[in-house]
């Protein structure tokens, strides 16, 4: 087959790599070093009208939950699909664990590293492995268990105040996800409700459905899909806050689910 095992093959493949890096560099060079002034029309428009039209003081959230919410929906969908895909691939892997090939001859360094990781188990959550883990100490469990709830609250703060301060659904969601990981690591026995992947997956689906309903809610008020149904009302930021919360739940549940799956703790 095409394996470049020969010396010539190796040189040939390095030459190909150099060539393609050079070709890409040639195309990218003008774009990366462009020095025309940055266009400011959008910025000026937002500074003048952004708050009035969406209600958000944080202009970044006025864009991704207002003007360009369609993109955000697509992004949450990518997240949803990636989580489901990772889950299905990894659950297939588990059935292979026992009969993984065992020929050690001629393994590269990376393969050996892979073996070492397999032996230590990393942060693996599957219970029978727990005692052999080098990385899961009592100290780790005590700290993560105690700090988890605090981080969870902080995540919700970032999520709910995204319209007035740096933060928002995505940032808050990521913090919530790390809180979920901490809670899972810190409660090695039964785990908490949030370390149950079934709960997380239902939460994720519910947030996805809510997100769809919210983006369609403009229909009832004559704005059509993806409009802000509260535009023109006294406080249009309510819509942004709700959306931030939903996006945050969605991201938190998805990423938490992803991390727990990767650590082998899904049910």
């Amino acid at each position: 087959m095409a394996t470049p095992k020969t010396r010539f093959g190796k040189i040939w493949s390095k030459a190909g790599a150099v060539l393609s890096v050079a070709a890409i560099g040639f195309v990218l060079f003008p774009i990366f070093l462009a020095d025309n002034p940055w266009p400011v029309e959008a910025r000026d428009y937002l500074a003048a009208m952004g708050q009035a039209e969406t209600g958000a003081v944080n202009l970044v959230s006025s864009i991704y939950l207002g003007y360009r919410i369609f993109d955000t929906l697509g992004e949450t969908i990518v997240l949803l699909v990636a989580v489901l895909g990772t889950m299905s691939i990894l659950s297939r892997v588990e059935s292979l664990v026992d009969d993984s090939p065992a020929d050690d001859a001629g393994k590269s360094g990376a393969d050996k590293a892979g073996d070492a990781l397999k032996k230590s188990g990393g942060f693996s959550l599957s219970r029978e492995k727990r005692h052999s883990h080098t990385l899961r100490t009592d100290l780790l469990e005590a700290v993560t268990g105690k700090i988890g709830p605090v981080i969870l609250i902080f995540g919700f703060y970032v999520m709910l105040f995204g319209h007035v301060s740096p933060g928002g659904g995505f940032q808050g969601g990521v913090i919530v996800a790390s809180a979920i990981v901490f809670l899972t690591l810190g409660n090695p026995g039964a785990g908490t409700l949030l370390s149950n992947t079934r709960v997380l997956s239902t939460l994720e689906t519910a947030a996805f459905l809510l997100m769809l309903l919210l983006s369609s809610s403009g229909l009832l008020f004559g704005q059509g899909f993806f409009g802000n149904p509260m535009a023109g009302a006294e406080n249009p930021e309510v819509y942004i806050i709700i959306l931030n919360a939903v996006v945050g739940l969605k991201v938190g549940a998805s990423l938490g689910f992803l991390c727990i799956t990767m650590m082998g703790g899904h049910k």
């Binding site: 691939i89 297939r92 292979l96 993984s100 090939p101 590269s108």
Partner: peptide, 13 residues
């Protein structure tokens, strides 16, 4: 995830 799967079926990265 795909990399892990490939490692499991082929024993190599």
């Amino acid at each position: 995830a795909l990399a892990v799967h490939l490692y499991r079926v082929s024993g190599s990265f």
